[in-house]
Design a protein around this nucleic acid. Structure first.
Length: 192
DNA sequence: GTTAAGATCTGCT
DNA sequence: GCAGATCTTAACG
């Protein structure tokens, strides 16, 4: 079952928390890839210097200011893509970074896209690894996440996957103190 | 035109 | 635990 737009129009931190336990699905010509989201981070537009949108709209972050429920994909550190879901009303500039999933289907394909024989526990345990395993690149920037090839799917048992915990976000040089990272506590597939 | 910093990963010590 | 790889974007001259 798909998410409705209203889900993404709520408070961004609530959306980040609410996505835990649900599915991220990728349909490739070679087969289906599916994972359960176990780690997310919220990026707010106001008073959040860590957010790309905090210093206004630019060519790179324009997607963040677009329609909720779209994908915001950007390239970082010369090597990696990061996958976000745009939240809030159009023009606000907020998003949720999906940092890690637990693989549930298409593990062979994920392994192939990751390009080495990494253990299952590391297939998608981090934003860059997740994009590699799901073959997500810049062509998905602005992609509507209710259409095929890449979408989010509700999981009825999401609320029973474990206790949710808020922690500081990872890898930032500013606003390190904000508790905007959400994890399923104790899950083996977290980035750390 | 030039430069510095970045929502990371991997391999080596 | 730490440094290096690697390159796009945005700010500045």
């Amino acid at each position: 079952m798909q998410f409705i737009t209203d889900f993404f129009l709520r408070d961004t931190a609530e959306v980040a928390r609410g996505l835990l336990g649900h599915y991220l699905v990728r349909e490739t010509p070679e087969g289906l890839i599916k994972g359960i989201i176990v780690e997310t981070e919220a990026y707010l537009s106001s008073s959040d210097p860590a957010c790309h949108a905090s210093r206004g709209k630019t060519k790179r972050n324009a997607t963040m200011f677009g329609l909720p429920g779209r994908a915001y994909v950007y390239f970082i550190y010369g090597n990696h893509y990061c996958f976000n879901v745009v939240t809030g009303p159009e023009g606000k500039g907020e998003a949720v970074l999906v940092r890690a999933v637990r693989p549930v289907a298409g593990k062979e394909l994920m392994l192939k896209y990751r390009g080495n024989d990494c253990p299952e526990i590391n297939l998608a345990s981090g934003p860059g690894k997740l994009c590699q395993a799901f073959a997500i690149d810049k062509s998905f920037d602005g992609h509507d996440l209710r259409t095929k090839t890449l979408y989010l799917q509700q999981n009825e048992s999401a609320g029973y996957t474990g206790a949710v915990k808020a922690t500081p976000r990872i890898g930032l040089s500013v606003a390190k103190e904000k508790m905007l990272r959400f994890i399923i506590e104790g899950n083996k597939y977290l980035s750390r």
